[in-house]
């Protein structure tokens, strides 16, 4: 059977989703590493962002792949969702017992995350790259109205990241299943590591708006 056919089957698409999903999760770890510079102060954070900008061409390639992964992850997800809707004759007739909400709501949480990413790029990413207007990166994030200067942005950010964590809670285990890790000797290690991605990393992200958006303002 041709490779194209193999990769566009329901299982093939799932494998693509698992691989892109895991790569995106790794990207998140890297992203968080950068964000945590915020806690080291304005200078450190600005220096870090400038370093990234100096990579120039390389960073564009990385961004290209990032968009590609997000796009194909969402595209496959949407196609499968449509197929699944069609396969189930009566949408409400299925068994809810003994299954996790995270799994059943993955398509929904994924959609919210997608909307979040769109706004995230159109605000932070756009501002950082094209619309700095003399502000420091640190200021954009912590004080500006597109950043955590706005409580609405902070709340949306917190909710979205929490949902992303919830999405990953299912996504990471699901990827383990799809990539055939379940049932092998690596299953345990994999499951133990998965909490880093669905719990600790999202928590790290959330800590930023909580601190800069709320706590730092009060004290």
């Amino acid at each position: 059977m041709s490779i194209l056919k193999l990769l566009t089957s329901s299982v093939g698409r799932k494998i693509l989703m698992a691989i892109t999903g895991l790569l995106l999760a790794f990207f998140m770890a890297f992203h968080l590493f950068g964000n945590l510079f915020l806690f080291l102060g304005e200078e450190a954070f600005n220096a870090y962002v400038n370093k990234l900008h100096q990579l120039g061409f390389l960073i564009r390639i990385a961004e290209f792949f990032l968009v590609l992964f997000v796009g194909s992850h969402a595209y496959s997800g949407t196609l499968l969702w449509l197929k699944n809707r069609k396969a189930k004759k009566v949408i409400s007739s299925y068994s809810k017992a003994n299954t996790s909400n995270a799994a059943r709501s993955a398509a929904f949480t994924g959609s919210i995350v997608f909307i979040f990413l769109a706004t995230h790029w159109s605000t932070f990413w756009y501002k950082f790259n094209f619309d700095l207007q003399g502000m420091s990166y640190y200021y954009v994030v912590t004080e500006s109205s597109v950043g955590f200067g706005s409580p609405a942005v902070s709340i949306f950010y917190i909710v979205a990241i929490a949902l992303l964590g919830y999405h990953l809670k299912h996504g990471i285990t699901s990827a383990g299943q799809t990539l055939g890790i379940v049932g092998t000797k690596y299953e345990k290690i994999y499951n133990n590591l998965s909490a880093i991605f669905w719990f600790w990393i999202p928590l790290g992200f959330i800590s930023i708006p909580i601190w800069f958006g709320f706590i730092a303002r009060v004290i």
């Binding site: 056919k5 089957s9 799932k14 499968l80 017992a97 993955a106 699901s174």
Partner: peptide, 22 residues
């Protein structure tokens, strides 16, 4: 077998685990 499963119009697995539970 996967190709036939798709042709028959079954949905895809999203690893909810409901199948094994039931």
């Amino acid at each position: 077998m996967v190709a036939t499963m798709d042709e028959e119009g079954f949905g895809s697995c999203t690893n909810t685990g409901a199948c094994s539970a039931e």
